[in-house]
Amino acid sequence: MEFSLLTIIFSLMAYGAAVVFVFGVLCRIMVYAKTPSPLKIPTTPAPTTTFGAMIRVLSEVLLFRSLYKGNKWTWLGGVVFHWAFLLVVLRHLRYFLYPLPAWDMSLQGIGIIAGIILPIAVLYLLMRRTTVDRTVFISSLADYFALTLIFFIAGTGLMMKFYERPFMVDIKGFVYGLATFNFSAVPTDPVFLVHFTLVMILLAYFPYSKLVHAPGIFFSPTRNQADNPRESRHVTPWSPNLT
């Protein structure tokens, strides 16, 4: 079976982006995991057990607990944005899984709603960034780039759902083919090609940008350490013991 140049280019791009993403994120995680925490520095009051500290980290990851204390409006935008993003990603698993599991099937409807909310949340975050003098001062190209990229990814996605409507079977064939090394031709719908390219850019950008906050938060010592210095002696790996 012969493939068009377009298919070859997009297939290579997909693998390239996937490798950069996986390799990059794994590298980050390994560096974080390898770097020691010499001292006990949880921001207190902190849980006194490791299990409690795990719950604390999860409450940050799932509910953005500290941000809630910090700024309710940013929290609202952040939570809506991240949860919408997650649901949209889960909805997209249908391109990778065959047959589609029931739990993912049940997420398709809410996934579409999340897809509509996502660009609205991005616009809200952009608006906040550009209207408060303090966030204007701290924002840079990278901050606008990430938001804009995601806005266009969401926009092109919604265009395909509600306006363009390319043939979904072709898209699934192409993506599923990439995932299973059972290649098929890339759909030629231009909106799809833009959407797909932007997602690949996001993947490759992820490990080398502030987007590593996603794996990074799990390694934040002020959040993941238990407050138990009296009960268990914490040892600094690179400092000799005093006698």
């Binding site: 980050r28 560096v31 974080y32 770097t35 020691p36 925490s37 010499p38 520095i41 500290s66 941000l67 910090g70 700024n71 940013t74 952040g78 906040r128 960034r129 408060v132 303090r134 966030t135 701290i138 924002s139 840079s140 901050d143 502030k210 590593v212 906050h213 990074g216 938060i217 390694f219 934040s220 010592p221 002020t222 690179w238």
Partner: peptide
Amino acid sequence: KYRSLKVFMDICVKCGA
């Protein structure tokens, strides 16, 4: 030597909180 420093250099998203 310090995981705190390494991680904190990388992960700020400039949310402004």
